[in-house]
Design a protein around this nucleic acid. Structure first.
Lengths: 120, 120
DNA sequence: CAAACCTTGACACAACCCTGGTAAGGTTGG
DNA sequence: CCAACCTTACCAGGGTTGTGTCAAGGTTTG
């Protein structure tokens, strides 16, 4: 069983056990559970916890904000509404070279495709 | 001059003048300024303010969270880091039918393209 | 079986977010 | 020129976040 219990995971990631429970509650890292309910952190979760800490520290992001992004990723309706709000930004068409914008979206699409192929 | 000053904009959008300044500070709706520095809200800004209120009320989203999404949209590095964190989610490939995932991204791409053509 | 874990739930507290208010001063328009 | 706006810069207070700690009880293991 290559999975750590919560205090072991805390020690190797730098979070406190309390915070690991909080991070789970926010929906960011949800470890498997043993039959009796113990949290079991595997290598992927540990990695995610470490990079999460790095991300928050280096970019001044909060857990709540990451939690909101997670919410947008789970809830397509919410994501669509938020995207739409931002995409209807008040600027005249002339302000953005449309080709640039499309280009940007295409690049994004390619980035995601690259990530996908790597994952599969 | 079809632009409203801050208190007029407040009255027609339901926000307080104080909140309009705060919303600007968060980077969500940044009105033009008159020569002497008065904020000038045009029709697009007013529309955005109304839909913003609707979005926050109906989905329980906070201004801070919207501000963070804006930050991600401006800062490509931040967006990439956050996206990467989520995309390296700890699930075995079998859990997601890859075709579904790609499909989803393609749909998204199409949605954005549609929005683009509408804007141009 | 007892020590050392784990669980959930609750209380606590500093720091921050959201929002209102007020003060000191510039702008506008009759 | 004066009333009614606007500006920025603060103070303030209720609500939420992030974090620790403790209590009551189940689990694992030497």
């Amino acid at each position: 069983m290559d999975a750590l219990t919560i205090n072991e995971a805390a020690r190797t990631t730098g979070w406190s056990a309390r915070m690991l429970r909080y991070i789970e509650q926010v929906g960011l890292v949800e470890p498997a559970r043993s039959g009796s309910g113990y949290r079991l952190y595997g290598a992927p979760e540990l990695q995610r916890l470490r990079t999460l800490r790095e991300l928050l520290d280096s970019r001044g992001v909060g857990l709540g904000e990451m939690g909101f992004v997670r919410r947008m990723r789970d809830d397509n309706g919410l994501r669509a509404e938020v995207d739409t709000w931002f995409e209807s930004e008040a600027r005249r068409p002339a302000d953005v070279a449309p080709s640039d914008w499309l280009r940007f979206e295409q690049d994004k699409h390619e980035r995601l495709l690259a990530a996908a192929t790597q994952l599969i």
